[in-house]
Design a binder for these strands. Structure first.
Lengths: 198, 198
DNA sequence: CCGTGAGTATACAGATCTGTATAGTGAGCG
DNA sequence: CGCTCACTATACAGATCTGTATACTCACGG
């Protein structure tokens, strides 16, 4: 029931440097705009090594996105562990995590959404990774909302999802200042009125 | 005060076919993944003609996005003209327009957001077009919200913006069914409670 | 009737793309 | 010692990328 299966490539030090360089370049310039020669050069590695480890550029893309997904989930888990136990505060902690993540990882929006824009085929191995993260986020929001207003969990979870995704876009495109703060405040209001009239 | 200036290329029939083919290919496969040879072939035009009209691939990208922007604004204006004059109904008409537009134009999300993901340089001539459309949408939402609750126009406009952008992403990635319907309903609730307690 | 402009057809330049081949180095280990 | 493994260095294959050059057709307008 995991998000993906395979992906059993040995992460040698050189492979880690490749994934690191690819992650930065893919995110900043886009996947198709970055060639394997550049990735190898930035990683301080020959193309031979790169292909020995990953086998194809497509596999590098998959490793990039899977790693990004795992990092985000761990990052979010840390924020949730540090949050107060009250359910509404835990929801707000998700928006705080999104904000902190975006500030730390650059302002080009969501890696998954950006990758999706460059992948035409739904049979691409990176596809389930992208969709999986969004479904997982919706499930998380819905679960947290269910601890506040069980019979409105679906509606609230979806609304929180829209606010968070909207904030990610607004942050990346600099539409207005502090979109995560705004989304967080709107989420707070939403949960307050939902919890007050059960 | 217009969004852009130049863009004075003569749109001959062949040029129109080029822009049409490029628009479809760019949106479905991504900008960097599509070459000018393919665009010319799909448009039934030689590369000579393509370069005589546009001069560069970059210019084709700009024309693609400017045209998309103009089409969307005209499309939205038609929906707003057909909507009831009551301000809340006009806000909901924006979400209906987004829904109809997305249904008609494919499920790869927002052209502007996708293009932004592939453009690294902020000095790219397409940049102001992308940012311009989002700022314009925020201004529209804020103006419409101002006719309902003037002293909350900014807050409501921004929240409506997040709901709409979030729905665009959720629709493109198929996160849950009918995100525009959901966003529209949440907007309705938001405007009702805002209008009721001035 | 002659020039202009939009278009076709084809070939090519030079760079860059993904991916592979050959040959060799050096460290760890049984 | 000898084997494996991670890695370097270099060259190249074949395709595709953006962009240009040459030579031609055809319609229209002064």
């Amino acid at each position: 029931m995991g998000t993906t299966e395979l992906r059993r490539i040995t992460m040698t030090p050189a492979a880690l440097r490749v994934r690191e360089a690819a992650a930065r370049l893919f995110y900043e310039r886009g996947i198709h705009a970055v060639g394997v020669d550049l990735i190898a050069a930035e990683a301080g590695v020959t193309k031979k090594t790169l292909y020995d480890r990953f086998g194809s550029k497509e596999q590098i893309v998959v490793e990039y996105l899977v790693d990004r997904d795992e990092r985000w989930r761990a990052f979010l888990a840390r924020h949730l562990d540090a949050a107060p136990p009250e359910p509404p505060a835990r929801v707000l902690a998700v928006f705080d995590a999104s904000h902190a993540w975006s500030r730390a990882n650059g302002s080009k929006g969501c890696s998954m959404v950006n990758a999706h824009a460059e992948i035409s085929d739904a049979s691409h191995p990176a596809y389930p990774v992208i969709i999986g993260q969004k479904k997982w986020m919706l499930a998380l929001f819905t679960r947290l909302a269910g601890e506040i207003a069980p019979d409105e969990a679906d509606r609230l979870g979806r609304t929180l999802m829209l606010l968070n995704e909207g904030a990610l876009v607004a942050y990346g495109l600099n539409v207005f200042p502090d979109p995560f703060g705004h989304a967080r405040e709107q989420a707070r209001v939403l949960l307050t009125t939902a919890g007050d009239r059960p």
